[in-house]
């Protein structure tokens, strides 16, 4: 699974209330949820993601509530992957389950800048920064987790495996 895109930078401890405020949790259409991503802190988020679709952030990304909508709204907003120094555990599980690649790599986070162009090989756990001509090795996933991501999330993964 290879992901290419440009970088949009966010800070530390981006919490799920900021990603998708509680008042939007009854929205069921994922594209409508996407329009509410960062509604209070970054109303132009959707426009930014149209041009820069790999989020690079600091520590503890996705901390807070168990709301799966936090991962869903980012995926449907067009975010291709999130590279972060660390992820909160429920967000991490949710992201894998909805098929949103989340990559832990603090060394890369420290050196990447907004607008850089990245190529991420999720299976091999390698991030290449074409703007800097550098590459980093990330915390690797077990193979089955990569399979879930490659399938596009847990639901597609189960459906595909059932079909086999």
């Amino acid at each position: 699974m290879i992901i290419r895109g440009r970088v949009y930078c966010l800070g530390d401890a981006i919490n799920t209330d900021v990603i998708i405020p509680g008042r939007f949790l009854t929205i069921q259409d994922p594209y409508e949820l996407a329009r509410k991503a960062f509604a209070d802190s970054d109303p132009l988020f959707l426009d930014h993601v149209a041009e820069t679709n790999i989020i690079v952030a600091g520590e503890n990304f996705g901390c807070g509530s168990s709301r799966e909508q936090a991962a869903i709204c980012l995926k449907f907003a067009g975010v291709k992957a999130i590279v972060s120094s660390s992820f909160a555990r429920i967000f991490f599980r949710n992201a894998i389950n909805v098929g949103l690649p989340v990559i832990e790599c603090s060394s890369a986070v420290n050196e990447i800048s907004a607008g850089d162009t990245l190529t991420i090989d999720v299976g091999k756990g390698v991030i290449k920064n074409r703007s800097l001509s550098k590459q980093w090795t990330c915390v690797s996933y077990p193979e089955w987790m990569v399979s879930i991501l490659t399938a596009g999330g847990y639901i597609s993964y189960i459906r595909k495996n059932k079909a086999l």
């Binding site: 799966e68 599980r93 949710n94 389950n97 909805v98 847990y154 639901i155």
Partner: peptide
């Protein structure tokens, strides 16, 4: 421990 909706459905 806590999880999201897909995990709970599983």
């Amino acid at each position: 421990t806590g999880v999201g909706a897909i995990d709970l459905a599983a």
